[in-house]
Design a protein around this nucleic acid. Structure first.
Lengths: 351, 351
DNA sequence: CTTCTTTGTGTAACCGGTTACATTGGTATA
DNA sequence: TATACCAATGTAACCGGTTACACAAAGAAG
């Protein structure tokens, strides 16, 4: 096994050795039936012998096509984004595109920097998470005619296409479900609305649900925290130790919901006997938990596929992307139950 | 806001408008103090006015430097790889490199294809997961003088540098810990050794631990399964329903360990009272679980940083990478306890 | 007042493919 | 037999930056 010969071989060298032109070598590799069988064999044999691997950079440069698509997610550590990312990746790979993935960690300046880098890389499309950002970024993309699509958040601006589900409606319907079975005092644990428009929309949906039922909104029962199991657990513990603890917890993501479940169980509260918990995302894990979590199913996979598809077809056909709304519906499992007492669960248990 | 002017501006156009040469524009952007303040301002003003974003492709092509590093992981859906990936990403970003991420889904042919694509893209380094693969791939990389480093698995071949921890030793020490507190009948739940050399090494470590204690290896107590919570749960349920169930479960990854915990609790078994469970990875989540999981802490973050750093310095200095071994030690939490009876836990409970 | 540096800028080759267009020879059609 | 067409291949411009080198002007040193 050689440990690195001089410089990598180039197209021209292969062409010279094969006694053909560079165009023929290029064709032999990219459109094999555009050359005669004889020539093709001779060229490909040389390609194999030299382990020639064409320089994709040069090819992209020459053809002015990068085949690159950029994806911006807050983090891949939350496995709901990991699943989404894999769906995008899979779809793009199938159409011969390459995916550039970047994480913002919920930082707007970092996101702006990433968009800039993507433009430098001449990506042929960008998939965003969430809709709220400096309009100048959208302007830059339009200037460079780079199609983009928003995910995880709807958009009321027709010039900003979104392939998503309705966070507001989904959160409201989860809240309604809790209210429908008698809960009046409901805690909300979610991400931080300041840096996360999905969290903002879900909070709004939650408030709307309360309002419909004329339940006053209590700021004490809302915990905005980073997406960590430990944060969900801490928030739940604080709420459940209140003098007037909630009888149900709506967690606007499953990671925190899991934390909340663990915390409640640690406090000796039974779920859903003492406290109902409803999550959001429907991670594979939560259906196995004890009890299986009632949660809002989010079409992460479908959304990723659809977004990739929309971008590819926009790049191919030069037509604008049409917004599309997907379903996010609550799936009833074992972590919710009708409200069953006048006293608070914590007080009841420690009476 | 304009919605896309004609073609993007080029360096030459900026140069013409500013009345300077292309070299000066290039310098004004890349090494600002190589030009006079006056010229710089004039050029940068034009850059801003035109929203000129240099073509990174052309730049890479011209300078023969891509600044690209490739990372190959089985999947990012397992959050231990997500954390690892983020560490790599962060470190690379800091050194001005860009990261190409690809998932193999534990498929060797797919991995070969990815490596080929990375070579086409002229990445300046590749980070692999695991060591076992077709040697021709390593040959190809050496041929193209692309440095690479193995992670998540040690290497006994000096020409294949590894920055990792010892899976075998870690699994053996976890097994020893269980044996030391009296367990003789220990189940193993892990990934599939056929496609995963880490799983293979962990199984070997487990067997070595048993052997030391002269405990016969029972094939029935080993479940090789995909990395899913549900799979861990199913495997645990099968084992715990045996006529002679194990008194302890060693799960070679935390995802399956969580599944196993859920399954055992569903069966009414208490952890660690009726069955001890030890995991592997130390996901953030498991320290919050009930009980907090005793598990092998894996230096995912440190490994990612170190691998990225090693690759960058190898690319910069043209020196080979030195293998490095990191620590993976068991962290004792609440899911293990001394063996406390002659009868099997399941039988005991249902007596 | 030379000569040597330093600073700022310009010129043009170059990176390695792709592809529009030209060319050639052979076969089918009128 | 003349014309049209097609298949196979070659020629060379081109993509948009980077950078080695050349060069001029100004300042420093002798």
């Amino acid at each position: 096994m050689d440990s690195g010969s001089g410089q990598p071989v180039t197209l021209r060298q292969i062409a010279r050795e094969a006694g053909v032109s560079v165009a023929t070598v290029s064709r032999a590799m990219r459109r094999p039936d555009a050359v005669s069988a004889e020539t093709r064999e001779r060229v490909l044999a040389l390609v194999a012998r030299h382990r020639y691997v064409p320089d994709a950079l040069a090819a992209s440069f020459a053809s002015r096509k990068t085949g690159l698509v950029g994806l911006i997610v807050p983090t891949i550590s939350n496995s709901i984004y990991a699943a989404f990312t894999e769906a995008v990746q899979g779809n793009l790979q199938a159409s011969g595109r390459k995916l550039l993935i970047a994480n913002t960690n919920y930082s707007a300046p970092l996101e702006a920097e990433i968009v800039h880098k993507f433009v430098e890389s001449r990506v042929e499309g960008i998939i965003f998470t969430g809709v709220r950002r400096d309009p100048a970024l959208y302007g830059l993309l339009r200037h460079y005619r780079i199609p983009f699509v928003i995910t995880w958040s709807t958009s009321d601006d027709a010039s900003i296409p979104a392939i998503s589900f309705d966070n507001f409606a989904a959160a409201r319907s989860a809240t309604r479900a809790l209210i429908a079975i008698g809960h009046q005092r409901i805690g909300l644990i979610c991400g931080m609305s300041a840096v996360n428009d999905r969290a903002e929309q879900r909070i709004a949906g939650f408030r709307a649900g309360l309002e419909e039922a004329a339940i006053p909104f209590d700021r004490e029962l809302v915990a905005e925290r980073p997406f960590e199991v430990a944060e969900g657990a801490a928030a739940a513990e604080i709420m459940m130790r209140m003098a007037q603890p909630p009888t149900a917890l709506f967690c606007a993501n499953d990671i925190q919901a899991l934390g909340a479940m663990f915390a409640c169980q640690k406090l000796g509260l039974s779920i859903p006997g003492d406290v109902s918990i409803v999550g959001f995302d429907d991670l594979p894990m939560v259906r196995i938990a004890n009890p299986p979590l009632t949660t809002v199913h989010v079409p992460a996979h479908e959304m990723g596929e659809a977004a990739a598809e929309a971008l590819v077809s926009a790049a191919d056909t030069q037509t604008p992307i049409r917004s599309r709304s997907l379903d996010a519906t609550i799936v009833m499992r074992g972590s919710h139950a009708p409200y069953r007492g006048a006293t608070s669960p914590f007080a009841r248990r420690h009476r």
